[in-house]
């Protein structure tokens, strides 16, 4: 898309849109010189000062681009701060400097598309997959920890439907019964022990993010992170969930993972069990284990009425 020209006057909604696009382009350009200054050039190489000077009025203390830089810095500091809060484990895996470069690249490629900062990390997994250069040589670990941390964002405030109780299921035919699972529940299959690693780096309050109307005048400041041993390679199946208002995660077996994810996809209980136990060790007492899974899940309130998409 070619850069819009600045309308000389704002006499219509289209003029307004054009001006807002122009200011957006300038503001969303990554900052330079340790995140303190506006990029010197527009996206097409024209001088930034010339472009911004078309719409921002200077005063006797600040040039047009210096005035715009106040907004650009606030934008970048705010969204970087949000990623710092939501992905402390990823930051620890990559190291502070590399995480900062990764976060800038991610946000430049995937600017916020939601009114809430809560959704800022929702494209981080595809980004890691498409741009492994930002996480190499730790891309596999980075992907697993990012997946785990994004699951916690979802588990924190996704909806909780009325849970089903044992009595609700009495007399149901497992060949026809399709159970819903709570929207806050996320199941993951990972190749590294990210749960142990996360516990080691966890240092944040799980409060809500700081939506407010103030202007940020400083970049995210974090204490130096003591370097930890990277998570060990280990195939794991995890359930990230919420109990009361706190986010928890627990390891589950491969078979339980297959069962619950099949139920999530809308399979009947019978079909889900078949998928789960297809390659199961015949030496195990699966009837007893399956009963335990269902009992534990019901106690945690994981089952709810299924809502067809």
């Amino acid at each position: 898309m070619s850069t819009p020209l600045c309308p000389p006057s704002i006499d219509s909604v289209e003029d307004l849109r054009q001006l807002q696009r122009l200011m957006g382009v300038a503001m969303y350009r990554p900052l330079v010189n340790d995140d303190e200054e506006l990029a010197p050039e527009w996206t097409d190489g024209r001088p930034m000062a010339e472009m911004v000077g078309e719409f921002i009025r200077p005063n006797d203390r600040l040039t047009s681009e210096e005035r715009l830089a106040i907004y650009s810095r606030s934008y970048w500091f705010r969204i970087l701060d949000c990623l710092y809060d939501d992905f402390p484990g990823l930051r620890s895996v990559l190291g502070a400097k590399k995480f900062h470069a990764f976060a800038r690249a991610y946000l430049a490629s995937c600017p916020s598309s939601s009114w809430t900062l809560r959704n800022l990390g929702n494209r981080i997994l595809p980004f890691i997959d498409q741009h492994p250069e930002w996480t190499a040589p730790r891309t596999a670990i980075a992907r697993d920890i990012a997946h785990f941390e994004w699951a916690q964002v979802l588990a924190f405030d996704e909806a909780r439907n009325e849970p089903l109780h044992g009595d609700d299921l009495l007399g149901s035919n497992p060949d026809e019964l399709r159970l819903g699972l709570q929207p806050y529940l996320v199941f993951l299959e990972v190749n590294y022990a990210v749960d142990d690693y996360f516990m080691a780096v966890r240092n944040r309050d799980s409060g809500m993010r700081a939506e407010a109307s103030n202007t940020l005048d400083h970049a995210p400041v974090r204490a130096a992170v003591r370097r930890l041993a990277l998570p060990k390679k280990q195939k794991l199946w995890l359930a990230v969930h919420r109990c009361d208002t706190d986010v928890y995660f627990k390891r589950i077996t491969r078979e339980a993972f297959l069962l619950f994810t099949a139920l999530q996809r809308g399979q009947t209980v019978s079909a889900a069990l078949e998928i789960a136990l297809q390659q199961a060790d015949p030496g195990e007492d699966w009837a007893k284990l399956v009963k335990e899974w269902f009992e534990n899940a019901a106690t945690l309130g994981w089952f709810c009425a299924r809502r067809e998409p």
Binding site: G24, Y28, Y75, S112, W115, T215
Partner: peptide, 9 residues
């Protein structure tokens, strides 16, 4: 915001 990109400002 403009064209679906949000500034959160």
């Amino acid at each position: 915001s403009v064209d679906g990109s949000y500034s959160h400002d």
